[in-house]
């Protein structure tokens, strides 16, 4: 699968989708004008990836900010990896947040109350 690298802007995140390395990474800010059109290609890539995944998948979220419309997309992404993990594949989600950003830490914890997937919390 081709590596997808999207450079972030003031309202869209940096995205790295690398099947060879099993790395799926989002960083920066996410408040795109049209969440659907921004995330649709990402979700399509992930759908294809979980058909023939790497032996180890690492999903990294290192976001400074995301709006509520993006929060649903993040949930959808996590659900794909919950399925992958349930099928016995090795998956690790890393949720990073700025040291003083309690809301971002809480947002991560909330996702992991909904989605059953191995995860780690990191502050930076």
């Amino acid at each position: 699968m081709e590596v997808i690298k999207i450079r972030g802007t003031e309202d869209t995140p940096n995205v790295l989708l690398d099947a060879q390395k099993g790395i799926i990474e989002f960083s920066g800010r996410s408040l795109p004008e049209d969440v659907m059109s921004f995330y649709a290609p990402v979700l399509r890539w992930i759908e294809e990836y979980i058909e023939s995944p790497n032996s180890h998948s690492e999903v990294i979220f290192r976001l400074d900010y995301f709006n509520t419309a993006s929060s649903k997309m993040i949930l959808d992404i996590l659900i794909y990896f919950e399925h992958l993990s349930k099928e016995g594949h090795e998956v690790l989600v890393k949720w990073s947040y700025q040291k003083d950003d309690e809301d971002m830490a809480d947002a991560g914890e909330e996702y992991f109350e909904i989605v059953n997937v191995p995860y780690e919390m990191h502050s930076y």
Partner: peptide, 26 residues
């Protein structure tokens, strides 16, 4: 509110405008 947000995120279909009522809860 936390439970409502989680519920709405899980079940609320994101309309084509990206609403899902999450904004006000948030």
């Amino acid at each position: 509110l936390k439970e409502l947000y989680k519920k709405q995120m899980r079940e609320g279909t994101l309309s084509d405008k990206g609403g899902a009522g999450l904004g006000l809860i948030d």
